[in-house]
Amino acid sequence: MSVDSAPAGARIERGAGRDVILELKNLSVSYGNIKAVQNLDLTVHAGEIVTLIGSNGAGKSTTLRTISGLLKPKTGEVIYKGKKINGIPGHDVVKLGICQSPEGRKIFQRMTVSENLDLGAFTRNDTAKIAQDRERVLELFPRLRERINQKAGTMSGGEQQMLAVARALLGDPTLLLLDEPSMGLAPVLVDLIFETIETIRDQGVTVLLVEQNALAALEIADYAYVLESGRLNLEGPAEALLDDDSVAAAYLGG
């Protein structure tokens, strides 16, 4: 149900004047006999930051991997810009404009920062635009410019997270999927990462954010979905969920 206690299945009106960029309809995903996501409905409008929060094992990362084409849904649909993309291989999903910064960063540790960024653009052949986008991410993350020829595995956790996000941006996404970008970071770096996510949105990239740091996620998001044991438990404007007692008790330490 939504945060304002609307009837089951009701939706809060949002995104006036904005196109729907992503829809998940009745999405279910399983690992063998284990049901990871069940009957999930989710909508992302262009220009939004939408966050998906919940405890460990709630199905958040599974949802992102399904959108990215790394997992196939058991039932339901993934619809991007009005077209069903179920079953499309992951590299072709990137070509459509969906790029992901994965949980755990997954950078290539023995390669330099520069080489990792090059791999982010592996599906592209627009050389001039790649150079522009590369400069843009180095402006977003000046520390990466300082370490451009350094082996990625020798950098701090925060720097590696910056690289993971920058690499995803080199894919030229319309929709950026971020999976636990604050995991394991010091508070000052968490603030920097979330400020940068807002900047990315302001530069025209729609963001779907998975986060266990629910407070930080809700503070920058436009809309939020709460997953519990693979099912949608709550949804609503992020600002409203920040003030919801049940969300505060379960996820915000209040």
Rank of each mutant, 00 (worst) to 15 (best):
G120Q: 03
Q100W: 01
A121V: 11
I85G: 01
F108W: 06
G76Y: 06
R124E: 04
L70W: 00
I67C: 08
P102L: 05
R65I: 00
K129H: 07
Q132H: 11
D92N: 15
L64C: 11
S55K: 15
G87A: 09
H91V: 08
K95M: 10
R105S: 04
G59V: 13
D118E: 13
A58H: 12
D133I: 08
V94L: 02
K84D: 05
K106S: 07
H45F: 15
T127E: 15
I130E: 03
K60Q: 12
Q100E: 07
G104A: 08
V113G: 04
A46H: 13
G32R: 08
V113T: 14
V50Q: 05
Q132W: 00
E115M: 02
D126I: 11
L52C: 11
H45W: 07
G57D: 11
P89D: 00
I53R: 04
A121Y: 02
K72M: 08
G120P: 01
K95R: 15
K74G: 05
R124W: 03
V93Q: 05
N56E: 11
R65Q: 08
L52V: 15
E77C: 06
I85Y: 02
K60F: 13
I79A: 10
G57W: 09
I53M: 10
P102V: 07
I107S: 07
R105L: 08
G47N: 10
D133K: 09
L119C: 08
L42Y: 11
V93C: 04
V94W: 00
V50C: 12
I79R: 02
N116M: 07
S55E: 14
E103T: 11
F122C: 03
T51K: 02
A128M: 02
